[in-house]
């Protein structure tokens, strides 16, 4: 465990909590893509099946359980409790265009052709693109609430910190996972445009709105 990995995990946790609190406090999930949140719930479910097969550490187990629980709670708030506030008309990204190719790729390119490993690979690939419905929704409406941009910032920062963690681990531990690294690079690149807007607009106190 190095500092980049730890801050990456905490950044991920911050993102998840920010989103939950935003929905809970405002009693509304306006501007949030339920589809992205469904995909993240699927990502955590397929990745953390090793909770049943192996124990790494108390930290590892607790974080996995927290991520899974929070992602299901978020989905519940969007599709059940605050369904009336869900902006389904703008959440029109076709998720099958992500899930089907990602599913096929995880069968073709993986470390080991076993059920758990294929599901882990699927979750890694899917996570890298799971934010697309949310970004698509923002590009459609042309704006995002500031709290939503904080959520996206921490979510993007998390994988960027993991990239540094992987460089660190490569040099100091000889650890290298090509699948995670390539997917992590793709994932981080998808946030670049958003990072630019976040720094140039949101951090200067302006609302994130896109030119018409």
């Amino acid at each position: 465990m190095n500092i980049f990995r730890l801050t990456g995990d905490l950044s991920h946790l911050a993102a998840i909590i920010i989103l939950l609190l935003k929905i809970w406090k405002t009693r509304s999930c306006a501007g949030i893509s339920g589809k992205s949140q469904l995909l993240f719930a699927l990502v955590f479910t397929t990745r953390y099946l090793d909770l049943f097969t192996s124990f790494i550490s108390l930290y590892n187990t607790s974080m996995k359980l927290i991520y899974v629980a929070c992602s299901y709670a978020t989905v519940y708030l969007i599709y059940m409790k605050f369904k009336a506030t869900y902006d389904g008309n703008h959440d029109t990204f076709r998720v099958e265009f992500l899930v089907v190719p990602v599913g096929g790729l995880s069968f073709l390119v993986n470390h080991d052709f076993s059920p758990l490993e294929i599901l882990w690979t699927f979750s890694i690939y899917l996570e890298s693109v799971a934010i697309l419905p949310q970004l698509f929704m923002i590009s459609k409406t042309g704006e995002a609430e500031t709290i939503t941009t904080h959520y996206l910032f921490f979510l993007g920062l998390y994988r960027a910190l993991y990239l540094i963690n992987w460089i660190w681990r490569y040099y100091f531990e000889g650890f290298f996972d090509l699948i995670a690294v390539v997917a992590g690079v793709v994932q981080t690149i998808l946030y670049c445009d958003f990072f630019y807007l976040y720094v140039t607009k949101v951090l200067k106190g302006k609302k994130l709105s896109l030119p018409a």
Partner: peptide
Amino acid sequence: GQSVEGKDEL
């Protein structure tokens, strides 16, 4: 690649 048992990252 690493085995399923070795997945210490989140």
